[in-house]
Structure formats: structure tokens, C-alpha cells
Computed example of a mutant assay.
Amino acid sequence: MSKKTTKTTNNEWSLLNQIKRSKTSYIMLAPYFILFFLFTILPVITSIVFSFTNFNMLELPEFVGWDNYIRLLLDDDIFKTAIRNTLIFAVITGPVSYFMCLIFAWIINEFKGKVRALLTLIFYAPSISGNAFVIWLIILSGDRYGYLNGFLMRWDFISEPILWLKTEKYVLPLLIIVQLWLSLGTGFLTFIAGLQTVDKTLYEAAAVDGVKNRWQELFYVTLPSMKPQLMFGAVMQITQSFAVADISIQLAGNPSINYAGTTIVTHLLDFGTFRYEMGYSSAIASVLFLFMIGTNKLVQRLLRKVGS
């Protein structure tokens, strides 16, 4: 038996011994792992497989190779518009909402007890409110009774109502504004929790080393101590910015005027839920999945360099 084979066998036995010693932990992890596999890993694998087929949910899938991807990348002009809109969303809302979450969490963390809990609820509430879109539909209503039109007409900025969500040049900027308003979600709570776990003695040690103000404490003590929370928050914000769909559908409709608010996810939903072209929609989902994976890897690498 060669040395390489012997080493491999020893590693396998070592892994089996570790599993036996920690079998209680693996048993406790099993329910989560099973659910994660069934509802996350398996759907991703299934989607990738279906992306190489022509499948309408009524007939058996027909293998078509790369045809869906060729059609998607070369012939689908709406998908190109969706990519552009999604990238604009991601580039603007991703970093901006990330820093908004961090700054607001840092400010709120300065308060104590019930005041901090109340402020956290106020800032977090829009992201979990099911009626958040109703508020913006009232504000952006295209008649004179819409709050924005009423305000602008009252102060003579405009002479007649503007159809904000039916005018191409206004749709995407307004959707970005609404997305930023809704962006204080899971990442925001993660930063709040991370700030409360920072060891207070580190601030005392930093003061001895010459740290003189709160901004220096933030950069030299707080942020390095929150690296796991910063990484998780980045992943959540990237995922959220690439997966924009509900905002566009609820406010601008699907399809929106001249596809001004179309994103990759709304394009996917169009083919998957209305046209029942499941193979093609799976190809769209696979491309979006690659976008997310690549962007997350890039951001994680950048954060590691900053934190090192």
C-alpha cells in the first residue's frame, strides 16, 4: 500500500472517529440540515437541471442543451434591460443600504434600554410591514390626491399631476428610493446585536493607546470586533439588492412601463408563473444565482482584506 493511500485511509478513519465522538451534535443538526437540503440545495440543483430543458409543467421535460442560455444571452432584449436595472439596483442600494444599516445601528446602540428597543422597532418596522407598499402607492399616486403631487402643486413646482409610476424616467429612481427605505432589515438587526457584543475593555485599552474620539473607536475597535456580523450583513444586503421584485411588481406592475422597472427576478416570474416556460425561467434563475455567488465572493474577499 502506498503512502498516499495510507494517508487517505488514516484521514477517513480520523473523520469517522470525530463523527462518532460528536454524534450528539450531528443528531441535533440533522433536522436543520435535512430542511436546508430539501428547501435550498435541492431546488437549486433542480433549477440548474431544468435550465437545460424545455419544460412547460404539462409535458415531460425535453433536453435542449444550451438553447435556453443562448436565447437568454443573445436574443432576449428584455433580459438585457433586466440585467441593467438589477445592476443599477445592486450598485446603488447594496452599498448605500449596507452603510445605512451600520450607521443607524451604531447611533441607536448609543441609547439604553427601552429607548434603544423602541428606535430599533421604528427603523426595522418598514422591512417587515406587509402594507409598506400601500403607503408609497398613496404618496406616488398619479392624480392630484397623491401626497407628492399635492405637495408639489401646492407650492407651484408643477402645474398638473405627474404619473410617477407610469412615466419611464421616474420609475427606476423611485423604486430605488423605496428599496432604500425598506432596506433596514436583517442586516440592521445583525449590526445591532454585534455592537452589543463588543468587549468594553477594548475601548479602555484603545484609549490608553491614543484613541481619542468615537470615530476612531468605530474604525479601530468596533468594526474589527464585528467582522462576522459585517460579513453576514454584506451577504444579506447583496442578496436583497439582487433579488428585488416585490417593489417593482407592487408599485410599477409587471411588466412596468417600457420595462423601466424590470429586474432579473420579475423577468423570471414572468416566464415561470405566467408563461409556464419553466426551463427558460430556470436558466434565468441559474444566471442570477451565479451573479449572487460571484458578487458575494468578491465582497467577502474585500472585507477580509480590509479587516486584515
Rank of each mutant, 00 (worst) to 15 (best):
L60G: 07
L87A: 03
N85E: 06
L73I: 14
Y69P: 10
I70A: 12
E62S: 13
N54I: 06
P61R: 06
A90V: 14
S47C: 12
K80D: 00
G65R: 06
K80T: 07
P43H: 13
D75C: 06
D77E: 14
S47V: 08
D76S: 08
I70H: 10
T81G: 12
G65V: 05
I88G: 00
G94I: 01
L73T: 04
L72F: 12
G94W: 01
F55Q: 00
R71V: 00
I83C: 10
V64K: 06
R84C: 03
N68D: 08
F79I: 05
I78T: 15
T86L: 05
T46P: 00
L74F: 14
N68F: 08
D76T: 09
R71K: 13
E62I: 13
N85C: 07
R71D: 14
F79G: 04
L58T: 12
V64D: 03
G94H: 03
T86G: 07
I45Y: 12
E62W: 02
T81W: 00
F63M: 12
I45K: 05
I45R: 07
T46F: 10
E62R: 13
L87C: 03
W66N: 09
T46I: 10
I92T: 05
K80E: 02
V44N: 11
N56V: 06
T46G: 10
I48E: 00
N56F: 04
I78C: 06
V64S: 02
P61M: 07
V49T: 09
L58A: 11
L74C: 12
L73H: 07
D76G: 08
D75F: 14
W66F: 15
G94Y: 02
V64L: 07
E59T: 15
T86I: 05
I45V: 15
D77Y: 08
F63V: 11
L87E: 02
I48P: 03
R84L: 10
